[in-house]
Design a protein around this nucleic acid. Structure first.
Length: 754
DNA sequence: CGGCTGGGCCAC
DNA sequence: AAACGTGGCCCAGCCG
């Protein structure tokens, strides 16, 4: 048996897979169950794509492809009469064979310039070469993803592009000769911490956290290929390096889970396999980055490249800082508050039993649906037997049922307890802090996303669990009305800009103008002002008249009149929106203020089809303007035409809404990202820590004795992040406990100190 | 059991 | 015939 095959056999034992001979004997139920379980895993789109790639070399695979297509289309193909189970078994057999074969091939074909570093002399040679490189690629291998918890580094790979050498340095593998971890870290530290040596990574945030745990602060991030990819194509299904390499470099590459199984830890991988896998990571990262650069240098992507260099790349450090800081959670308070809420919940539940039959689960929409619409025969307002809050409220308006009211209260409480008050403390790590994730590439528009846990959707009532460490406070700075301001700036509407330039209330001014009422009747708290707020959102997000009517509890005709009046008062806004529709029809993408793109491939054709059918409808009816409800014309328009138009209309209007929204939301996100970079720099000079961002606000931990000058300095970092044609306003907030007793700047500095 | 989906709901 | 943009998490219920 060759060395490679020995490694594979060892690996199989590590993976818990019995050798082939033993497998045949044992066919217990448990084992079958396990097999089914494994079979159901990992049959992803990417798997199937690879099956298609391999079909020429293995005719059997064609059958599997056919089976899959037949599942999708809902027919059975005559040449592929397999049950789903049989097909999955075939897939399983194939993938295990392939996995083994891939590993054998991978090790056998390990490139000559991949080197395993197992002794200090070799490491010294590598470091010497590394110091001559202007830019290198780095990647880490770990036991898992819980970096603030149990998981840690087991080895790292480095690519030296000039020398064309690729290394893997194992430090904590279970078996094989290795250099002690601290020795490796000490030797790498000077180069890794030297900002003059550029680093190219794939998901740099992850590796930087890993290295921080080892006492090394990676500096000089030159590029994060994952973030660049997202700027080049914001809505790919997968942003895994291996999938991208397969897709764009035309180099079929398997992900870790595909090669080793989902539950495998990297420290169990034999070193010869680890080298072939891990050195390829940095090799691919570097090559992928070069491929990206070849695109970014094109004229039409210059702006995107600039956006990357000036915003997204420096922002990676800010994300790392926010995640490192982490929130302090008041666990004692969480417990007390949880108990109070649970008592209220028990009360609500006891009350619910007065109205609902025994043994029903109030958390189950399926069961509630049956009671509301079958047993109680309530009118189906939503037309889909919904039991959501909106429907329940409207139902209650009609039938006045205490059970419905209590159910709403029950829902509120279960959400608060079950998702936040009880659950958030579970995320606290050994350092006593909660480190949520901030993903700068988490959305298609450019906004941040947050997870594990999501810190961007904490309800006001649950925010009070988050506190500042002793001697510090939470400082918040949020942009006031950033999205309407962006609209005012981009649309160039003088009237729309007026309230901002004069420093008066936007919504009151808009309402007065649109409703033709004196401004006194549109002030704070008035109905007209509230209506205007909803109306402006509808304009920005492209709400349909039907929904707007529902929200404002007015008729569809009144809603149409409302929006028409708005466009008469603010004609440039309407013209700008139409210009966006034209842009997206022509280019199939739109661009934010800072050059971020949102793409809508295929929209051009759809828009042309839309125009064609719209024209036909107008001609048949002999009208200029497309009627809002074509279904009213029962005889005048053939069903087929109406149906075809409705189809394309839905798609085209959806893209139009998304395009308008992407520019507004995306530009606001650009501004916020710039602001975060400046804030991070300002915070660093003051010795403060970035904590979080919630779309239009940034949170920091600062000294409770922060000075007015320091606050001015932080505020300026935000206000100075952009220059719009109108003023930008930032509101500062000071508190010991998030969401509670929040003071503004004036209040904070004039408060009575205890 | 573990993955997946749909309904519901929190934030901006 | 009909859906307001961007997200993530929890629970039921289903599947293999």
């Amino acid at each position: 048996m060759s060395k490679v095959q020995t490694s594979i056999e060892n690996l199989k034992i590590n993976l818990g897979e019995a050798p082939a001979a033993a497998a045949e004997k044992k066919t217990t139920r448990a084992k079958q169950a396990k097999e089914i379980k494994e079979t159901s895993l990992n049959v992803t789109e990417a798997d199937w794509e690879r099956v298609l790639l391999m079909k020429n070399s293995n005719p059997d695979m064609v059958k599997i492809r056919d089976v899959r297509e037949s599942w999708r289309s809902g027919d059975t193909l005559p040449q592929a009469k397999f049950s789903k189970t049989e097909a999955l078994r075939m897939w399983k057999r194939f993938s295990i064979e392939r996995r083994e074969q891939t590993l054998i091939d991978m090790v056998a074909n390990t490139p000559k310039n991949y080197t395993l570093i197992q002794d200090e002399a070799a490491l010294d040679t590598m470091v010497e070469l590394m110091e001559k490189e202007p830019i290198i690629s780095v990647d880490t291998e770990t036991t898992g993803l819980d970096l603030f918890g149990i998981d840690h580094l087991v080895g790292l790979s480095v690519t030296l592009p000039v020398a064309d050498l690729h290394y893997y340095i194992p430090t904590r593998h279970d078996e094989g000769k290795q250099i002690p971890n601290d020795v490796v870290m000490n030797k790498l530290r000077p180069c890794f911490e030297n900002p003059a040596i550029g680093k190219v990574l794939f998901n740099a945030k992850f590796d930087t956290h890993v290295l921080i745990n080892e006492g090394v602060r990676l500096n000089g991030l030159a590029a994060d290929a994952m973030i660049i990819m997202w700027l080049l194509s914001e809505d790919l299904l997968s942003y895994r390096l291996k999938d991208l390499a397969t897709k764009f470099l035309k180099e079929p590459s398997d992900t870790f889970a595909e090669l080793f199984g989902k539950n495998c830890k990297f420290n169990t991988i034999p070193l010869d396999i680890a080298l072939a896998y891990a050195a390829k990571d940095t090799d691919l990262t570097w090559r992928f980055y070069q491929w990206q650069l070849s695109h970014l240098s094109k004229d039409k992507l210059k702006e995107v490249h600039t956006l990357y260099k000036t915003v997204e790349n420096p922002l990676v450090e800010v994300c790392i800082n926010m995640e490192q800081t982490g929130f302090i959670v008041d666990t004692k308070f969480a417990k007390e508050y949880g108990d109070i809420l649970k008592a209220e919940l028990a009360e609500a539940e006891a009350e619910l039993w007065n109205y609902f039959p025994k043994d029903i689960n109030f958390n189950s929409p399926t069961q509630l649906k049956k009671i509301f619409y079958e047993d109680w025969q309530l009118p189906d307002i939503s037309k889909k037997q919904s039991t959501d809050a909106d429907t329940l409220k409207r139902l209650n308006d009609e039938v006045e049922h205490d059970g419905i009211k209590t159910l709403l209260r029950y829902r509120e409480l279960t959400k608060l307890v079950g998702t936040y008050v009880d659950k958030l403390p579970n995320n606290i790590k050994e350092d006593g802090r909660l480190h949520g994730g901030f993903k700068q590439n988490g959305t298609v528009t450019g906004r941040f996303a947050s997870n594990n846990p999501n810190l961007q959707n904490i309800p006001t009532l649950a925010r009070r669990l988050f506190i500042a460490p002793p001697g510090q406070i939470i400082f918040g700075a949020d942009y006031s009305q950033i999205e309407p301001r962006v609209l005012a700036h981009i649309s160039g509407d003088e009237h729309f800009r007026e309230p901002y330039n004069k420093g008066i209330d936007l919504y009151a001014t808009l309402a007065a103008k649109v409703f033709k009422k004196p401004i006194e009747e549109c002030g704070d708290g008035t109905k007209l002002r509230k209506m205007m707020k909803v109306g402006l959102l509808a304009v920005m997000y492209g709400t349909t008249m039907r929904t707007l009517a529902k929200q404002l509890r007015i008729s569809v005709e009144e809603a149409e009149q409302f929006i028409e009046d708005f466009y008469i008062s603010y004609p440039q806004v309407g013209l700008w929106i139409k210009s966006v529709w034209e842009q997206v029809k022509r280019d199939e993408f739109v661009t934010t203020m800072y050059g971020r793109k949102r793409r809508f491939p295929g929209h051009g054709q759809q828009a042309i089809q839309y125009d064609k059918l719209a024209k036909e409808i107008c001609e048949r009816l002999g009208v200029e303007k497309l009627p809002s409800n074509i279904w009213a014309f029962k005889k005048e328009l053939p069903y087929k035409l109406k149906r075809a138009f409705q189809d394309v209309k839905g798609k085209v209007e959806r893209v139009r809404r998304m395009a308008v929204n992407a520019i507004i939301q995306g530009s606001a996100a650009d501004v916020m990202k710039l602001a975060l970079i400046r804030l991070d720099a300002a915070a660093t000079t003051l010795g403060y820590a970035m904590l979080a961002t919630v779309h239009d606000e940034a949170l920091l931990y600062v000294d409770e004795n922060i000075t007015v000058e320091e606050v001015d300095f932080l505020e300026e970092a935000m206000t100075g992040a952009c220059t719009l044609d109108i003023p930008v306003k930032v509101d500062a907030m000071f508190t010991y406990r998030w969401g509670e007793n929040e003071l503004n700047k004036k209040e904070w500095f004039s408060r009575d100190k205890k």
